[in-house]
């Protein structure tokens, strides 16, 4: 059991960060604090995907050291799958980071509009003023 926890420590950190962000989104009453919690949540999910892409045993970035085939080291550096880290989650999470910033911008714009109308960022006071 201890072996299982220690060997997968990246995933435990990801779960802890995700729960911190989820708690901030639910329990905090300030709107900017909720947005910060959403940011932490999204970053934790990106950390999970990057952790799945990682390989142990000396795998590096997928760069061909000798692409035109001079010397006999070219073939195995080009084709061996265990020699490079899986690049597909990296590309997916590159898009997710851009979407994260777009979400942040729209959320902050909505927060500014709410502040102009109600004069506060506290959720309880906004709900009280709406009634």
């Amino acid at each position: 059991m201890l072996e299982f926890i220690v060997s997968k420590y990246n995933f435990w950190i990801y779960i802890i960060l995700m729960m911190i962000g989820f708690y901030a989104m639910i329990a905090k009453r300030n709107l900017v604090k909720k947005i910060i919690g959403m940011n932490i949540f999204q970053t934790a999910i990106i950390l999970f995907f990057i952790s799945t892409a990682y390989k142990t045993g000396g795998a590096t970035l997928p760069i061909l050291l000798d692409p035109h085939g001079h010397g006999h080291g070219a073939a195995e550096s080009a084709v061996a799958v265990s020699q490079y880290i899986n690049p597909l989650p990296h590309v997916l999470m590159l898009t997710a980071i851009v979407v994260m910033v777009a979400t942040l911008g729209v959320a902050l714009a909505i927060v500014i509009m709410i502040y102009r109308k109600y004069g506060t960022l506290n959720e309880d006071e906004i709900i009280k003023a709406m009634k």
């Binding site: 910033v101 942040l104 902050l108």
Partner: peptide, 23 residues
């Protein structure tokens, strides 16, 4: 993108609203 532009967007929004919070 996230640490640069995100922080700048948040600071701009906080300067336009308020820094004070209860929690």
């Amino acid at each position: 993108v996230s640490a640069g532009i995100g922080t700048i967007l948040c600071i701009a929004a906080i300067m336009k609203t308020t820094r004070r919070t209860k929690d």
